[in-house]
Simulated assay, not measured.
Amino acid sequence: MELGARTLWALYRKHPWLAASLTRPLFLPNLMVHGEWVLGALDGQGLDPTMLFDIHVLLYSHVQGLAVHLEMEAHAEAVTGQSEDQWMESRTPALQELVESGRFPTFTKVVGAFEDGYDLRLDALFEFGLKALLDGLTSLVEGQEVVT
């Protein structure tokens, strides 16, 4: 499952436009290969068909959910002519106003703790989420936990 997720992430990094809606998926042979591979890895674990497919969709959703931002950022940069860093820098006054309002104390504390601001690293978020997801699914797939 981990290899499948990493392969899909690499595909989206190369072709970000493929990250289509989960509710209106692209039925393309090369994407179906991924689905078949993950379902095959889960098959034979004693999971009922709904649980098996739910796990597949959950794993796919993690990868696809982050990958959507790859295409959105490329589009935003093309439209605005600004990099992500330039855009964020131009929004400093709005951020400062929110911080100074006193309405968001936890946000202010967390944001204030960053020496050079928060760097949104999609690859790192992919890794972090994948590990958490796979660790959480392990006991379920191995039959140690029942989800109702």
Rank of each mutant, 00 (worst) to 15 (best):
V110S: 04
V111Y: 15
V111E: 14
V111G: 05
G112I: 10
G112A: 09
A113M: 07
A113Q: 10
F114W: 13
F114Y: 15
F114E: 06
F114H: 12
F114S: 09
E115T: 15
E115N: 12
E115A: 14
E115M: 07
E115H: 13
D116V: 02
D116L: 10
D116E: 14
G117V: 05
G117F: 00
G117Q: 04
Y118F: 12
Y118R: 09
D119W: 04
D119F: 06
D119E: 09
D119I: 09
L120A: 08
L120K: 07
R121W: 08
R121Y: 08
L122P: 01
L122C: 01
L122G: 00
L122K: 02
L122V: 04
L122E: 04
L122R: 03
L122H: 01
L122T: 01
D123I: 00
D123S: 02
D123K: 00
A124D: 13
A124R: 12
A124W: 10
A124N: 05
L125N: 11
L125V: 06
L125D: 12
L125A: 12
L125P: 01
L125I: 10
F126N: 11
F126M: 15
F126W: 11
F126L: 12
E127Y: 03
E127M: 02
E127A: 13
E127W: 04
E127K: 05
F128M: 07
F128P: 00
F128T: 09
F128L: 12
G129M: 15
G129F: 13
G129R: 15
L130S: 07
L130P: 01
L130K: 13
L130F: 09
K131E: 14
K131A: 13
A132C: 03
A132Y: 03
L133W: 03
L133H: 07
L134R: 06
L134D: 05
L134C: 11
L134Q: 07
L134V: 12
L134P: 02
D135P: 00
D135I: 02
D135L: 08
D135Y: 06
D135F: 03
G136L: 01
G136Y: 09
G136W: 09
G136M: 03
G136D: 04
G136A: 01
G136S: 01
L137D: 07
L137E: 06
L137S: 02
T138V: 02
T138P: 00
T138A: 15
T138C: 02
S139C: 03
S139A: 12
L140G: 02
